[in-house]
Amino acid sequence: MGSKRNISLAKALRYKGQASYLTYILHRIGGSALFVFFTVYLLGLLGVESMHALMRNWLFQVIFLIFGLFHAINGLRITFLDLSPKLMEHFRTAINIEWVAYVLVAGFALFVVLRNAFGD
């Protein structure tokens, strides 16, 4: 199996996949971001001060929250649809609900992070 795809991300997003494909890609990016976060967290626990400082950095927190929260919320949708196959008929509605939930949760989290970073 080769790794050549010859299709750009922009082209793929315009293809039939659309919302499903976008969530698929973002889920993978989110999972990778959490993998990096776990490593940074572990090194921070071990007392590596630079990693601890990185976790306190607002930009790191923003990036982690944007992708990490998407992974968590999208994972919930995937689990619901996988365990209740009948709901698969309504997957587009489920994706729309997911986006609303994501915007609300991520919006609140970003507000708190940015207020702590730049507030007062």
């Binding site: 994972g75 919930l76 689990t79 196959p85 009948k86 698969m88």
Partner: peptide, 27 residues
């Protein structure tokens, strides 16, 4: 229309096990 396979008919092989493992660890 979407094609779905009931959980009871998916069989139990390595792929099914890992699928279930990933879902249940997420839950």
């Amino acid at each position: 229309t979407t094609r779905t396979l009931p959980i009871s008919k998916r069989g139990f092989n390595f792929e099914t096990f890992m699928w279930a493992f990933t879902r249940f660890t997420a839950i």
